[in-house]
Design a protein around this nucleic acid. Structure first.
Lengths: 116, 116
DNA sequence: TTCATATGTAAGAGAAACCTTTCAGGTGAA
DNA sequence: TTCACCTGAAAGGTTTCTCTTACATATGAA
């Protein structure tokens, strides 16, 4: 297999990161060619602080990676690249992912009623 | 092909619907077997009103479908089934989806500066 | 009638996400 | 120095999401 399938928690984080039009557009732009923050902000047409927030979210989910590089004239530029994620989204795939969810598991383990 | 690929907007809605642990768990449970609202609420261990809200979200995204049926003893039960969605999530797939996004396209069309 | 099952909705609080504006630092060139 | 470019982050307001509690309705059985 190409990559280890994400855990349920990782998958949810990944889907949350991709559930925003701007972030999908960011991924699409970076998939075409890597770019630095200011350049990407101009290309997409949003403010740098806003883009910065979305980039943080995407990187936290492991969908992009940033690297600080020095341009020819000595400027510090942060370039971002998309990672090689490839996830399939289907009922059965989600069923597998759900098995590894760590979020508070309300009434599992046993079906004993807790009260009354 | 199995199904027409979702538009960018539909994909974002679908991802937003799946970006919650409870909703992933709901899909997983319904993928194992169809169920009605109250039964599903007991199985997952959450309140019915809360489940109702999540079901609405999932159905709005086209991931599940509900059907009102009558049980043997005449009770009206709303059964839910998962749909046969199957979406691939990769940089190139997102690039295609991004092309059909209808959300306010800040600085596209032409790179002319609007002000200054 | 009363109880237990089923359905749905509305009100309100708390938390999180989103976006803008503002600020602060660095470098190279004119 | 001043300007233009790059980086990051904090402050504040608005909106959306999430969840609980409570209410309203319908059915069959005891």
């Amino acid at each position: 297999m190409t990559a280890s399938p994400p855990t349920g928690d990782e998958l949810v984080d990944m889907l949350a990161a991709l559930s925003h039009p701007l972030r999908v557009r960011i991924i699409a732009s970076l998939a075409a060619r890597r770019n630095y923050v200011s350049g990407l902000a101009r290309e997409i047409g949003i403010s740098r602080p806003l883009l910065h927030m979305h980039l943080r979210r995407l990187e936290a989910a492991g969908l992009i990676v940033g690297a600080l590089e020095l341009s020819d004239d000595g400027k510090a530029m942060k370039y971002y690249d998309v990672t090689d994620f490839d996830v399939r989204l289907s009922p059965s795939a989600l069923a597998e992912a759900a098995a590894t969810l760590t979020t508070a598991d309300p009434g599992k383990g046993s079906h004993t009623k807790e009260q009354s």
